[in-house]
Simulated scan of single mutants.
Amino acid sequence: MPYETIEDLPDSVKDNLPKHAREIYLAAFNNAWDQYSDPEDRRGDASREETAHKVAWAAVKNEYVKEKESGKWKKK
């Protein structure tokens, strides 16, 4: 279930990430959704959706870090 816009993302993403990070998440999720459509390409028993979310979070963490004090995501 690829997302069409950042407004379609789960609340856990929309409510926590700045706009640019949400854009990264959206692009990474949709790309991973396509890339990992075959179960043989995924690790273990992970579903297609679970794998896409993991890839998307990893992409965000390449450019953003969550501050311990405030809990807000900031660009590295």
Rank of each mutant, 00 (worst) to 15 (best):
Met1Gln: 00
Met1Thr: 07
Pro2Ala: 08
Tyr3Met: 05
Tyr3Lys: 02
Glu4Gln: 08
Glu4Ala: 09
Glu4His: 07
Thr5Tyr: 13
Ile6Gly: 00
Ile6Asn: 02
Glu7Ile: 10
Glu7Thr: 07
Asp8Cys: 12
Asp8Lys: 11
Leu9His: 03
Asp11His: 14
Asp11Gln: 14
Ser12Ala: 06
Ser12Asn: 10
Ser12Val: 11
Ser12Lys: 09
Val13Met: 03
Lys14Pro: 11
Lys14Leu: 13
Asp15Pro: 10
Asp15Ser: 14
Leu17Tyr: 03
Leu17Cys: 04
Pro18Glu: 09
Pro18Ile: 07
Lys19Arg: 04
Lys19Ser: 10
Lys19Ala: 09
Lys19Ile: 14
His20Asn: 04
His20Gly: 02
His20Pro: 03
His20Trp: 03
Ala21Thr: 00
Ala21His: 01
Ala21Val: 02
Glu23Asp: 07
Ile24Asp: 00
Tyr25Gln: 06
Tyr25Val: 12
Tyr25Phe: 12
Tyr25Glu: 03
Tyr25Arg: 07
Leu26Phe: 07
Ala27Val: 14
Ala27Thr: 15
Ala27Phe: 06
Ala27Cys: 14
Ala28Met: 15
Ala28Thr: 13
Ala28Trp: 15
Asn30Gln: 04
Asn30Pro: 00
Asn30Gly: 01
Asn31Ser: 15
Ala32Thr: 03
Trp33Phe: 12
Trp33Val: 02
Trp33Glu: 03
Asp34Tyr: 08
Asp34Trp: 06
Gln35Trp: 14
Tyr36Cys: 06
Ser37His: 05
Asp38Cys: 12
Pro39Asn: 02
Pro39His: 02
Glu40Val: 14
Glu40Thr: 15
Glu40Asn: 07
Asp41Leu: 15
Asp41Glu: 15
Asp41Val: 11
Arg42Trp: 02
Arg42Ser: 01
Arg42Pro: 01
Arg43Leu: 08
Gly44Val: 00
Gly44Asn: 04
Gly44Lys: 00
Asp45Arg: 05
Asp45His: 07
Asp45Asn: 08
Ala46Cys: 07
Ala46Asn: 10
Ala46Gln: 09
Ser47Gln: 05
Ser47Thr: 11
Arg48Val: 04
Arg48Ser: 06
Glu49Asp: 02
Glu49Val: 08
Thr51Cys: 07
Thr51Arg: 04
Thr51Ser: 10
Ala52Lys: 02
Ala52Val: 11
Ala52Leu: 09
Lys54Met: 05
Lys54Gly: 05
Val55Glu: 02
Val55Lys: 06
Val55Arg: 07
Val55Met: 09
Val55Ile: 15
Ala56Gly: 12
Ala56Asp: 12
Ala56Met: 04
Ala56Ser: 12
Ala56Phe: 01
Trp57Phe: 14
Ala58Glu: 11
Ala59Gln: 03
Val60Gly: 11
Val60Asn: 06
Lys61Ile: 06
Lys61Cys: 11
Lys61Thr: 01
Asn62Tyr: 04
Asn62Trp: 03
Asn62Leu: 00
Glu63Cys: 07
Glu63Pro: 09
Glu63Ser: 12
Val65Cys: 10
Lys66Glu: 04
Lys66Gly: 08
Lys68Ala: 15
Lys68Leu: 15
Glu69His: 13
Glu69Thr: 14
Glu69Ile: 12
Glu69Tyr: 10
Glu69Trp: 11
Ser70Cys: 03
Ser70Lys: 05
Ser70Leu: 01
Ser70Glu: 04
Ser70Gly: 05
Ser70Thr: 13
Gly71Arg: 05
Gly71Asp: 12
Lys72Leu: 13
Trp73Ile: 01
Lys75Gln: 12
Lys76Glu: 02
